[in-house]
């Protein structure tokens, strides 16, 4: 792991100001909310969020908003094009001297995994291609959570969702693997990509701090343990997030200067079972009958991922 000078080393180093107030309409224990809270601590309040319809659209509900920064909703599939328009217009106005520097702001897209992996992917790809200067924050709870947890392109193999329940004919639930957005984005060589976890605040903050000094598309995939969709007690969010990293299911990494660097490597990986068995969406793998074949396949997927780096 590379240590960068001047980076945060302990929790007390994090920015004391909050750019998002508590008490929003999101579910208790939402992992993504903690992620965006930490991100905004690092980015400050001069951020315009272009949102895609999803859970986080409930953050700014008339007449309340928890943000110190600004919020823009256009359409579900096109938060990135909206960010593009805003960025370009602000650049033009700044160049023409019609906008003071302190009135300018960073543009950040906030979208769920459904929008990011499915309907919003083409515009995102185009914006990376155009080298748009923006942040992209994807809160990844591995399904369309806001509408009742339906299968998305990011739902992992073996998880049950509303549209992919586990049945006798389909014992795994979701039968396809999780779309690897990190690799898809990487293929276009943007200046920065990172995976972050709310359970690793220092890692997350350092990644945003690093990205802040860069220009271009800076993309973040934030694992968002989802108490309602995944089926666990809200108080266990951090435990689930920790297990996701410790089992190696959710690798924390970043892509910078053309290199993928893992920022937290579990010394000895905990068996995936420990992560799966705590969630209702994987319960069919253990009850009424243990489905070893599926659990083994999930474990093999994780092992073969890490084998590439060990």
């Amino acid at each position: 792991m590379t240590v960068h000078p001047g980076e945060h080393k302990k929790i007390q180093d994090l920015h004391p100001e909050e750019a998002i107030a508590p008490g929003s309409a999101l579910c208790a224990g939402c992992g993504g909310l903690e992620g965006i809270r930490l991100a905004l601590k690092e980015l400050g309040e001069n951020v315009l969020i272009a949102n895609a319809a999803g859970c986080f659209t409930l953050l700014s509900v008339f007449p309340f908003t928890p943000f110190k920064g600004s919020w823009l909703y256009t359409t579900m599939a096109a938060p990135v094009p909206a960010a593009q328009g805003v960025r370009d217009a602000l650049d033009i106005r700044r160049e023409a001297g019609r906008l003071a520097e302190e009135d300018d702001f960073q543009v950040m897209v906030v979208a769920g995994d459904g929008s990011s992996a499915d309907m919003g992917l083409a515009p995102t790809s185009a914006a990376i291609h155009r080298r748009l200067d923006f942040f992209y924050f994807c809160y990844d709870n591995e399904a369309y959570g806001n509408t009742g947890f339906q299968l998305s392109g990011a739902s992992p193999y073996g998880s049950a969702t509303q549209t992919a329940p586990a049945t006798a004919g389909h014992p795994a639930g979701a039968e396809l693997g999780k779309k690897d957005l990190f690799e898809i984005w990487k293929a276009q060589n943007p200046p920065y990509i990172a995976t972050v976890s709310p359970r690793e605040p220092i890692d997350l903050s350092n990644k945003f701090a690093r990205a802040k000094s860069l220009h271009g598309a800076r993309l973040f995939l934030c694992l968002s343990p989802c108490p309602t969709g995944w089926g666990f007690d809200p108080r266990e969010t951090h435990l689930i997030a920790k297990l996701a990293v410790d089992t190696g299911i959710f690798p924390l990494k970043e892509y910078i200067d053309g290199q993928v660097v893992h920022t937290r490597v579990p010394k000895k990986r905990v068996p995936v079972e420990n992560y799966l068995e705590r969630q209702k969406r994987f319960r069919h793998l253990f009850q009424p009958k243990r489905q070893d074949e599926i659990i083994t396949r999930i474990q093999q997927g994780v092992d073969s991922y890490w084998a590439r780096y060990e």
Binding site: T74, P81, A82, Q84, P123
Partner: peptide
């Protein structure tokens, strides 16, 4: 949508 963003920006 890009047009919208640009118009929002003035």
């Amino acid at each position: 949508s890009q047009c919208a963003g640009a118009a929002f920006g003035g």
